Simulated assay, not measured.
Amino acid sequence: MACPEVITGSVVIPGEDYERIQRAAANGQNLWRLSPVRTAQEVGTIHLGLRTNDAYTFVEQYRDTDSGLMHAVVRVKHRSCTYLVELYQPEQQGRGGIWVVESIREA
């Protein structure tokens, strides 16, 4: 693998409390959580070995028919590697709902 510093697979951030994060966003804090691209960037940089200056591109957004949850995909160009970051909205769907990283995989 060309970019061993990047963590791939399912993503679980210890201590991430979606309800609390949603409340904070509703109160105007951590507004980056309302953007799938910014969430991929922030979470990816802090937890997953990505860099702030990697190229983050919004790919698509869709509603999962089984769960009813909104999902988004962000493509990240990191050095010679390309990754797809899958995100979803665990608390509130659509505008005003926070985004959470679900997984990251090589494109």
Rank of each mutant, 00 (worst) to 15 (best):
A26S: 13
T57F: 01
V43Y: 04
Q93G: 06
V37T: 07
S103D: 06
G94R: 02
E102T: 00
T45A: 08
M70H: 08
I7A: 13
S103H: 02
I98H: 00
L34S: 05
A107N: 15
E5L: 10
A107L: 15
H47F: 04
G96A: 08
V37R: 03
Q41P: 00
V85K: 08
A25S: 10
G96Q: 07
P4S: 14
E86C: 12
I13G: 05
Y83A: 09
E106V: 15
Q92A: 09
R23K: 07
L50A: 07
P90N: 11
Q22N: 12
G28F: 10
V76L: 00
G9L: 03
R95G: 14
R51M: 14
R51N: 13
E19R: 06
P14M: 10
Y62R: 12
L84Y: 14
A24L: 14
D64N: 06
R79S: 15
G49R: 00
D66M: 08
V73Y: 03
E91R: 08
L48R: 02
V37E: 05
D66C: 02
I104M: 14
Y83T: 07
V37H: 00
S103T: 02
V73W: 06
Q92D: 11
I46V: 13
H78C: 12
T52D: 13
Q22Y: 04
V37F: 01
E5K: 07
A2C: 09
I98P: 05
I46E: 11
W99G: 03
S35N: 02
G28K: 04
F58K: 12
L48W: 01
V74E: 02
S10N: 14
R79I: 06
I98D: 02
G68S: 06
R75E: 15
G28H: 10
N27V: 00
V74P: 04
T57C: 03
L69K: 13
F58G: 13
V73G: 12
R95N: 10
L69A: 15
R105D: 09
I13F: 02
M70V: 09
V74M: 03
W32C: 05
R23T: 13
S67Q: 02
V85Y: 02
A107K: 14
